[in-house]
């Protein structure tokens, strides 16, 4: 059985490579019982979307920049 710490590693690994069958089964089993890890996995996907938007220059959506600090 995987614990939460190991599951967070698998959740990251699945963004890099196809999981082995054993990993898939262990992951799915754990996620069924663990809301924390299910949420973690969802949030990693959100972060990837945010990162994509950031890379496309969408971070600067606001038209009014407060413009304090640097001149």
């Amino acid at each position: 059985m995987l614990n939460c710490k190991e599951v967070t590693e698998v959740c990251s690994a699945e963004m890099e490579r196809p999981l082995r069958l054993g990993e898939q089964v262990s992951l799915r089993t754990h996620l069924m019982m663990c809301t924390g890890c299910s949420e973690y996995r969802r949030q990693l996907k959100t972060l990837r979307q945010v990162m994509q938007a950031y890379a496309e220059g969408k971070a600067i959506a606001d038209d009014v920049a407060p413009g304090p600090g640097s001149a």
Binding site: T35, G36, C37, E39, Y40, R42, Q43, T46, Q49, V50, A53, Y54, K58, A59, I60, A61, D62, A65, P66
Partner: peptide, 20 residues
């Protein structure tokens, strides 16, 4: 982890990107 508030909505705000 607990569920985050609506990310799509937050991504429209400057505050969100400042934190990011």
């Amino acid at each position: 982890p607990v569920a985050w508030p609506n990310p799509e909505e937050s991504m429209q705000t400057r505050q969100f990107w400042a934190v990011f």
